[in-house]
């Protein structure tokens, strides 16, 4: 039992959970508006779209990958789905086509990374512009409103007072965490991120799985796009702008690294929750909105510094200097 507690306490999730709890308690005392159903739901609804993307991004970053194009993919699927709906296509088909566009874009990203061997950052950075550009081309820069009522049934109803985007996000997070943490299939992504060559020699289908992780990321971005479009009842060409950085920030706060091999969906969710919480707190406390971006940066830096210090202490290791110090020759 004691060992179990010690292990939980060492987890990155626990550290963020404690911070989330501290912020929550502090805010409950400092603002009467904080712990109200209305505020909490608004907070969760605000981060639900990004939370959906966080699930797949965690999986991708655990495998050592990286996707800068999620915000643009979201806008692209949103625009295409809305276009098809306005053409009178049945909701089911329009949604399915939108989702498959997300998956196909993921496949393209994955193909270039896993098969062609391009750098993930560069590949998906081009995607960031490509799909935002396509969105602008097909919409002519116009927002697309006037979507059918039956489509809005995805993102607008409430169950027990809770909006569906929150429910969808929570279900995906719980499912995603369970699978990535425990299932044999998804555990393989940790091995790929930990040491790709060794994973290959361990009989893991590295290329195929890497492609799949991009497909999932594209697909989840598309799911987020559909949910968001339905919620707003319109497709916006600027939807998801800058989202990739907020999502990646949350995943790193949650314990993942750019090298891969670590991270969890729960941690990433707590990461995005913490960011949302801090912004909500700043709002309620009447701090200027201009501070928000600054605080996100500070949170990320604090999280990785604490993590690094913890690791250094664990290892008790000394890092050799890369260059031997020597007297400068003066000429």
């Amino acid at each position: 039992m004691k060992e179990w507690i010690a292990r939980v306490a060492r987890q990155r999730e626990f550290m963020i959970f404690v911070i989330v709890a501290v912020v929550t308690v502090a805010m409950t005392f400092s603002s009467p508006h904080f712990l109200t159903t209305g505020n909490i739901l608004a907070l969760l609804l605000g981060l639900s779209i990004e939370a959906i993307v966080v699930v797949a991004m965690t999986n991708l970053m655990v495998s050592g990958g990286f996707d800068m194009s999620v915000g643009s993919v979201l806008a692209f699927t949103s625009a295409t789905t809305a276009t098809f709906l306005r053409m009178g296509m049945p909701v089911v088909f329009a949604v399915l086509i939108g989702l498959s566009f997300g998956a196909i874009i993921g496949l393209i990203n994955g193909f270039f990374v896993a098969k062609v061997g391009l750098n993930p950052f560069v590949t998906t950075l081009s995607g960031l512009s490509l799909y935002r550009g396509l969105t602008l081309i097909i919409t002519g820069g116009q927002n697309l409103a006037g979507l059918p009522r039956s489509f809005r049934a995805i993102g607008q109803p409430r169950f027990f007072g809770v909006q569906t985007p929150i429910i969808i996000a929570l279900v995906l997070i719980i499912l995603g965490d369970l699978l990535l943490r425990n299932s044999r299939f998804f555990r393989q992504f940790y091995y790929i991120g930990g040491n790709e060559k060794a994973a290959r020699l361990s009989g893991i289908r590295v290329d195929r799985l890497k492609m799949l992780s991009y497909v999932l990321t594209g697909f989840f971005a598309a799911v987020a796009g559909v949910v968001m479009t339905s919620r707003l009842g319109a497709a916006s060409v600027t939807a998801g702008t800058g989202m990739e950085l907020r999502v990646i920030t949350a995943v790193i706060i949650g314990g993942a690294s750019l090298q891969g091999g670590e991270g969890s969906v729960l941690g990433s969710f707590l990461g995005i929750l913490l960011m949302g919480l801090i912004l909500n707190a700043l709002n309620l406390l009447g701090v200027s909105v201009y501070w928000q971006t600054f605080v996100v940066g500070a949170t990320l830096l604090t999280a990785v510094v604490i993590d690094r210090l913890g690791k250094l202490k664990n290892e008790g290791q000394l890092v050799l200097p890369r260059f031997r110090f020597a007297r400068k020759t003066t000429e």
Binding site: N182, S183, R184, F185, R187, Q188, Y190, Y191, G194, N195, K197, A198, A199, L201, S202, G203, I204, G261, E262
Partner: peptide, 28 residues
Amino acid sequence: QGLFLNFSIKANLIANHLSDFTGNTPFI
């Protein structure tokens, strides 16, 4: 090429035969 140095001993020991640890479920 052989090991996952940042992973635990047990994660390394099972890397090449994960399916032996799932019984008939999808979970390890």
